[in-house]
């Protein structure tokens, strides 16, 4: 299974790559904004999990999520964001997010949260 990390911070992408590799996921794509994510999803049908930041230039995470859900209801999308207000979480879940992870996070907690998606797809 291939994972797509969408975050404008290269350091954050590097941290999440490290977490995924710990979980045995080595097929990983990275992009820096929502538009690049949509392009990547269109071009690569092997992507089976999306980790999506909220605040990004060009296209935000929530806009990206809404675009994804117009064509793909099944793809697991996990928001990874600093947006901690209840209203934001509800907005993301209503828009079709499967899960919501808050920054700052402990890498082990991320691993635990992602495990169900990785197991359901057999990595």
């Amino acid at each position: 299974m291939k994972a797509l990390i969408v975050d404008d911070s290269q350091i954050m992408r590097r941290i999440i790559v490290s977490v995924l590799k710990k979980a045995g996921v080595n097929d990983i794509a990275e992009v820096a904004n929502g538009q690049e994510a949509l392009d990547a999803l269109k071009a690569d049908k092997d992507i089976g999990l999306v980790l999506l930041d909220w605040n990004m230039p060009v296209m935000t995470g929530i806009e990206t999520l809404k675009h994804i859900r117009t064509t793909n209801k099944q793809l697991p999308v996990v928001m990874v964001t600093t947006e901690s207000e209840k209203e934001r979480v509800v907005e993301a879940i209503k828009a079709g997010a499967n899960d919501y992870m808050l920054k700052p996070f402990n890498p082990d907690d991320v691993l635990e949260k992602l495990r169900k998606y990785l197991e359901s797809t057999g990595k």
Partner: peptide
């Protein structure tokens, strides 16, 4: 980039 991400995390967490 990392310094920017730290202040982003702190501000985002604080506003909540």
């Amino acid at each position: 980039d990392g310094i920017g991400e730290i202040v982003n995390i702190v501000a985002g967490s604080a506003k909540g």
